[in-house]
Design a protein around this nucleic acid. Sequence first.
DNA 1: ACCTGAACACCGTTCAAGT
DNA 2: ACCTGAACACCGTTCAAGT
Lengths: 247, 247
Amino acid sequence: MSEQLKAKSGLRGRAARVGLDKQQIVAAAIQQIDQRGLAAFSMRELARTLKVSPAVIYWHVGGLQEDLFAEISAVITANLTDDTTSGADWKVRLRSVFMRYRQLVHQHPRVAPLLGAQMKSNGVANLAWVETVLSALTQAGFQGEALRDAFNALIGGLAGFVTMELAPPPADDSNDWQQGFAKRVADIDPLHFPYTHAVLPMISNRIFVLRWQNGIDVSYDSSFELLLNIIIDGLAQRAQQLNNPPE
Amino acid sequence: MSEQLKAKSGLRGRAARVGLDKQQIVAAAIQQIDQRGLAAFSMRELARTLKVSPAVIYWHVGGLQEDLFAEISAVITANLTDDTTSGADWKVRLRSVFMRYRQLVHQHPRVAPLLGAQMKSNGVANLAWVETVLSALTQAGFQGEALRDAFNALIGGLAGFVTMELAPPPADDSNDWQQGFAKRVADIDPLHFPYTHAVLPMISNRIFVLRWQNGIDVSYDSSFELLLNIIIDGLAQRAQQLNNPPE
DNA sequence: ACCTGAACACCGTTCAAGT
DNA sequence: ACCTGAACACCGTTCAAGT
């Protein structure tokens, strides 16, 4: 039997029988991060769960762990298109695409640090995202430096929010840190920090910095929506000033 | 000579002569991250540059690498106070404290991922920051859930922006990735992505996602200021609505 | 109290060799 | 083309032992 026939019929030598490809590897990696978190992720552990030699990962993905991470980011943001609202008002389209971005990241919350805090993970994968935002802003009347700043304010503010929201807690197996931190928050000195102390029951574990759980356990929906509304409204105001300059 | 005398006079046995303390360790760690980046940081390397056994780090800092990272974050955000403008208008105070936050992080840009993307690094160190923001927002008229959302929108949006802005590039020694990515951006298909292609010279390497350098090499000053202005203006508008509800 | 040296259980990555 | 096994050069963390 020729090599071609073997390949076509799926019959191969012991080495080739595994039949692994890049897609499956990336999918398995996402699953592993979903379950154990990014800090616990390892190439060797991934190879183990795939019942394969570590070198296989490198052969399929090529190069380094960073490249695998970039593939993961690409897969997660791949569905970030806006077909549904492509004819709509630019404000509606921006709302929609950023709500969708947050929704996608929340489907794999423990992958979030990759999207926000690693440059290589922002590949050409989500060009559709960029195109949507740029076309909406162009439609609004932005161009040149103003377009650039508007784009960065949107992505930096909103994607940045999601990154902070889903910042991973310590890898502490136990919840020692959670308890300790909760106690320190409860014991905040009313003399040094009167305003903080006054609203403690309202904000404890519900605002950034003073929390011991992240956006997986505590909802930041209304805070994100406030930020989204503020940015879009603010851009709309400034767009109007650009188009009808004060006389 | 008694033990106390030896300690007082600085004369000690071979082991104690090193005279290392937590402050120096944290300072050395910051220096190391500043130079080589967070990805290249290691406890053993730190011990090596301090000419000390790795165990020493653990003895002084206690526990895990995360704890050292938390100390680092605390040191960097320690000077985040607003004494200068404590009597000023709440909008001025917010502007000032968030400009200062960004300025502090930019002094150690490669530490940025710790502040934005790790929960343990947000210790009780920067309570002064929280107090400043909460007092300003209270003064503006926010309370209850609205206060919470306003706080989160500010911190999530602005600290999130800084985290994205300073997201580390790949550890590639060479600039292979930079060149490859730059080429892919330049070759963006005008048929699939007309709006992106149209403004390419304006945005290439200057907007998030479509860049191969981060905020260390390319300035995002004007984008940050736009976001800061939009958020503060938006909060001011909403504060007014809270205080003078529509009839 | 502060430090050393060695040990344990891992990593990421590469590479010759196999089928 | 796809995979194995072993190897290299590291890690983080702990712990008995020293002074």
